[in-house]
Nucleic acid binder design. Sequence first.
DNA 1: TGTACATCAGTGAACGCGCGTTCACTGATGTAC
DNA 2: TGTACATCAGTGAACGCGCGTTCACTGATGTAC
Lengths: 171, 171
Amino acid sequence: MGRVSQAQAQENRKRIVDTAARLFRERGVAAVSVADVMAAVGLTHGGFYKQFASKEALVAEAVGKAFDDMGGMLAGVARADYLNWYLSPEHRDGPGAGCPAAGFSGDVAHEGPGAAADAYAHGIEVYADWLGSVTDVATLVGAVVLARATAGTPISDRILAETRAKLLSEE
Amino acid sequence: MGRVSQAQAQENRKRIVDTAARLFRERGVAAVSVADVMAAVGLTHGGFYKQFASKEALVAEAVGKAFDDMGGMLAGVARADYLNWYLSPEHRDGPGAGCPAAGFSGDVAHEGPGAAADAYAHGIEVYADWLGSVTDVATLVGAVVLARATAGTPISDRILAETRAKLLSEE
DNA sequence: TGTACATCAGTGAACGCGCGTTCACTGATGTAC
DNA sequence: TGTACATCAGTGAACGCGCGTTCACTGATGTAC
């Protein structure tokens, strides 16, 4: 394949970021290679560096995009509905389209300062403002992170159900 | 160096597990190689497979050991003292000797079922029994995970302080 | 509008590198007599 | 208690592999006239 139109190139770039945002949350940044992302989009890995400076730069963009998408979702939903979705088995089992605060928590903490950490911290502030409490953010993120790490054992469902009951009773 | 006494070999094995439990929590499992662990203990990497079947087996033992150590700590401490330590900047900044539920959350969630996930789930149950509430476990773990991922920004300290205030007021 | 040419997004082979793991070897330890 | 020998924890070079990244090349796109 030769050169591609600017519109097509821009669309390819967007699809790379969206796909990375999904795969990184599903499997973790370290377990997803640049070639994995490009193959999932339908391109070969060589062209990646025509669009991005490095894998690290893609991670930062993917974190930012995931939080932007979450922000859009928050705008049109009621708090109780959001809590029910957030603490559902569906959200636990589908991290790829789920909360970036939970999905990227491990990777951002271990990667140290940088563009990804900045995007993450900004996303958490937006999130805390919407929920009205940083403690509620911690409880939600902790519940989903723990439910995922214990998935397949009885305590996983208990964590989700009891956290849901507690937060909804505080309304 | 030639053969080593059985007592020495057993002590080396313990030091490998302890060192791995610390390094894995500090940097994440993927960022710590078998050679890193062995070098930190003062051995060469080749001997590792005389003691362990694979890196995966070491991860599982390290998770188990970290939760055992935490269990020992819980036995002799008051709830309020524990909450104060758990939600301190010191705990946020020192994951190597910190809570394994927080330190291993990302790695266990992405690695899927296995011995490490079993040890993790069992540790969470012990932890929830001691705290008396799975929701409190979620709040503690979520607060530290978020505080680490946002370390260096103002919201990190806020998460710890507000979560501490809230949990202590519920006593 | 048509033509000639420069641009550059995407291709696919190749790079150096570090990983998990293996293996022939060493020599002090443990054991049989 | 001594001696001879088998064991095996640790050594360090080597293995195949996949990673992030680079690069010469392709050929449709975009542009100058």
